[in-house]
Amino acid sequence: MNIEALCADLEQHGAVYWHTTRPNFKRVQDLVDEQGPAFLPLCARPGGDFLNFMIRSDLVDGGLESIEKRVAQAIGRWQGAGEPVPHNEPI
């Protein structure tokens, strides 16, 4: 995983998600925390799955449940599109 690219995507797009295991997400989260923007690690739950993502802290104005729901919907749309990589999906 290219941490610099992930940090750049987080800066540019505001939130990032990728397929990974929870322990790997935590490892990457720590690496981003060392050099990236301030963010919150959250979990979207499309279809009952637990999908970790990061969102810039300055974009969170309360309502974490609303953000998680919107990200889950965006992930669902991405999955419906065949999971193209790279891909930007509005939340």
Rank of each mutant, 00 (worst) to 15 (best):
M1I: 15
M1A: 15
N2Y: 00
N2D: 15
I3N: 10
E4W: 01
A5C: 05
A5S: 12
A5F: 04
L6D: 00
L6N: 02
A8W: 01
A8S: 12
D9Q: 08
L10C: 02
L10E: 02
Q12Y: 04
Q12S: 12
H13A: 11
H13V: 04
G14L: 03
G14I: 04
W18A: 14
W18G: 11
T20A: 14
T20F: 00
T20C: 08
T21F: 04
T21G: 14
N24P: 00
N24Y: 13
F25C: 01
V28G: 04
Q29G: 07
D30C: 01
D30E: 10
D30M: 07
V32C: 03
D33K: 12
E34N: 02
G36E: 03
P37M: 05
P37Q: 09
A38V: 01
L40E: 13
C43E: 14
C43Q: 12
R45D: 06
R45K: 15
G47I: 06
G47W: 04
D49S: 15
F50R: 14
N52R: 10
F53H: 08
M54C: 10
S57V: 02
S57T: 13
S57E: 12
S57D: 11
D58Q: 04
D58P: 02
D58A: 02
L59S: 11
V60N: 04
V60W: 08
G62V: 10
G62E: 07
G62A: 10
G63N: 15
G63C: 14
G63S: 15
L64P: 06
L64S: 10
E65D: 14
I67D: 13
K69C: 05
K69M: 08
V71P: 03
Q73V: 11
Q73Y: 02
A74H: 08
A74M: 09
I75H: 01
I75A: 03
G76I: 00
G76R: 04
R77P: 03
W78C: 10
G80H: 10
A81R: 13
A81V: 02
E83K: 13
P84A: 07
P84N: 07
P86K: 08
P86V: 11
P86S: 12
H87L: 00
H87V: 01
P90C: 01
P90H: 02
